[in-house]
């Protein structure tokens, strides 16, 4: 069982990202689950989304999770929420930030000793898609760190999932995914 927790703000596309990832993984024969915690809070509020992936049907519906990966797609959340909660020794953190890794860890000591990767998904999204929607770049970074799929296969799959969007936006997302794949450290 592979488990992923997303930290996001409502409106940044974490749910769409989690469902998109589940969709891609599902085409490879694995069983998936994607869900989120919603409250009545509106756009901008901190929220979490989740993925579970397994070779057998996913029956566990508990919300409690000790994630294998933590995605932080908004740079402020690393300070305002505890992104390490229920973390395991080998949990990998992919964090959106403009800071170098050591400065980030200095600013948030809870990340000390964790396996941390950084990528600036917000800047990538702004520069490619034109809007601060950091969900697809995060998936590009995840492909690099996890080596789950070949990046070309992943991009082709995402094209299918995003097919209802205008071609220009789809193309921009592909560039964003590739940039995050290349830039994550």
């Amino acid at each position: 069982m592979l488990e992923i927790r997303w930290h996001s703000r409502a409106g940044q596309g974490a749910v769409t990202g989690a469902k998109g990832l589940a969709d891609v993984i599902s085409t490879t024969g694995k069983h998936v689950q994607a869900f989120a915690f919603y409250g009545s809070a509106k756009r901008g509020a901190a929220m979490t989304a989740y993925n579970r992936v397994d070779d057998k049907p996913v029956l566990n519906h508990e919300k409690y999770m000790e994630p294998d990966y933590v995605f932080v797609i908004d740079p402020a959340l690393v300070y305002t929420s505890d992104v390490t909660v229920n973390g395991k020794d080998n949990t990998k953190y992919i964090i959106t930030t403009h800071l170098p890794k050591d400065e980030l860890i200095k600013a948030q000591p809870k990340l000390e000793g964790k396996e941390v990767y950084t990528v600036d998904c917000i800047t990538i999204a702004n520069e490619t898609i034109g809007r601060p929607i950091p969900n697809t770049p995060m998936l590009g970074a995840f492909m690099k760190i996890s080596e789950m799929y070949d990046i070309e296969f992943f991009k082709e799959s995402m094209k299918r999932i995003l097919k209802k969007l205008p071609q220009k936006i789809v193309d921009a997302n592909m560039i964003a995914i590739q940039r995050a794949y290349d830039e994550v450290k």
Partner: peptide, 11 residues
Amino acid sequence: DGFLTSHTAQG
């Protein structure tokens, strides 16, 4: 189940 099923994507 609200959210647990209604908003949980599965294959």
